[in-house]
Amino acid sequence: MADLQDDLHARTEAGELDDLPVPFPADVLPPEPYTPVSDPDDAPLKRARAVLAAHPVADGYSGLPWALKHLPWYDLELGETAVDTDIPRLREGRVGALFSALHLPEGFDGDRAVGATLDQLDLVRQVVRAHPDGLRLAYDAGEVIDARNCGRTAVLPGPAGAAAVGDRLGILRSLYALGLRVLTLTGVSWAGEAGLTRFGEEVVREMNRLGMIADLSGASPATVRRTFAVSKAPALCTRSAARALRPHPANLPDDLLAELGAAGGVCMVPLTAEQTGPTVRDVADHLDHVREVAGPGSVGLSGTYDSGAAHPLELGDASGYPRLVAELLRRGWEEADVALLTWGNVQRVLRGAAFTARAARLRRPPSTATIADLDG
């Protein structure tokens, strides 16, 4: 471990770099980030910043709410050294959107899970309200773009653990009304190793009707495949890399990556040593592999900051995304594919969830099914 810590600490063209719009107002642009001495040729890094100015990062997983919950005081606007994420580093990393994970401690279920999730939903709102110059709550693709155009980072509540829903669809609807937009389909009786039960399928259909996105990171292969079959909306894997390169249980084998791509989902590769490796090159290897197997329309980024995970030295906090994109550009990634990776693919999933919800609400009312009705 000591040795590891030494190493860690709808497709759109990107267009000509000179014409790229800058989403952040000039008066809030951060200073230029430090260029490592090991990379004397900073042309790819400058090019990466230009691409990210037009196509900022949509980060699939941030553990910031749980990390802030345990701090007696913090100021994300000035900068907060106790966490990996604050507004200066979000600006330096060109992060335009952030999925704010509602972490559940091990063993939480029932009312405790509901209470912990509601508590963190409230905390997310409080944090955003306290930092209006840098953050803005967003619940759909349009609001994400509005926040970006105003120079703010959009904060989307979720993913949350399915244990918060338990076996009651009324709680699912209530959590959606309170802002939850992503639910992880693990840790419950209706989404286990054997796949989705009949009630689990009804949960997915109700999520489609609401516009809530399914997160399949950590789900069993049977659950993943059944979700693909039942859901009319694309899914996310908010913290999954390529198992062919690193045998972590949350990473996806190639057959599931291919099926995810065919289903229009997005595999959001985490920037962590445990799942992808101890260097920025290892992370880029996973992005190359996922793009090759699932397709350029099915790969995204997941910082997984403030989750307790170790990160590569070059990607130690939310400011490091330009260095990762520079590595991809050195490898020959087209700017249009980088734009899909950082921004376009997540926007497509958000729009797909909203479109599916509008259509589903015309076909069916809110479900009154219970787990006793369907699985009893």
Rank of each mutant, 00 (worst) to 15 (best):
R205W: 07
A326H: 03
V204K: 01
M212N: 02
M212D: 04
D317P: 08
A241V: 00
A219M: 06
V293H: 01
G277I: 05
R225N: 08
L245E: 14
L301D: 10
G264Q: 09
S231W: 06
Q275L: 15
S217N: 11
R330H: 04
L329D: 03
L324P: 07
G195I: 08
V266T: 09
E206C: 14
D255E: 10
S231L: 00
P247C: 04
T238Q: 06
E327M: 13
P270H: 13
E314P: 01
L236C: 03
G265A: 10
H248D: 14
L257E: 14
F199V: 05
R226S: 14
E202W: 12
C267W: 10
L329M: 05
R291Y: 06
E193K: 14
R331V: 03
R291A: 13
R246N: 13
L210Y: 12
R331K: 00
M268E: 15
D317A: 02
G297S: 15
E201V: 02
L210R: 04
G295S: 12
A244T: 15
L313Q: 11
A318N: 05
V299H: 09
G300A: 03
A235R: 09
G303H: 00
V299K: 03
S319M: 00
G261C: 01
H311D: 03
F228C: 08
G295V: 05
Q275S: 09
L301W: 05
S319Y: 01
K232D: 15
V299E: 06
E274K: 14
G261Y: 09
R331F: 01
V280D: 00
A284G: 03
E206Q: 09
L245I: 13
V280A: 12
T223N: 05
A242L: 11
Y321C: 05
S319F: 03
E274S: 15
C267H: 07
A310K: 13
A284N: 08
E314I: 03
D317Y: 00
D306T: 00
P221G: 08
G297L: 01
G297C: 04
G303S: 04
H311S: 10
N208P: 09
A229R: 11
G316S: 12
R331P: 00
E193W: 00
L196A: 06
A326I: 06
L271Y: 04
G218V: 06
R291P: 02
G303D: 05
L256C: 14
L329H: 09
H286D: 07
P278T: 15
A194K: 13
A258W: 07
R225S: 14
C237V: 11
S302G: 14
S298A: 10
A250G: 08
E201M: 04
D306H: 05
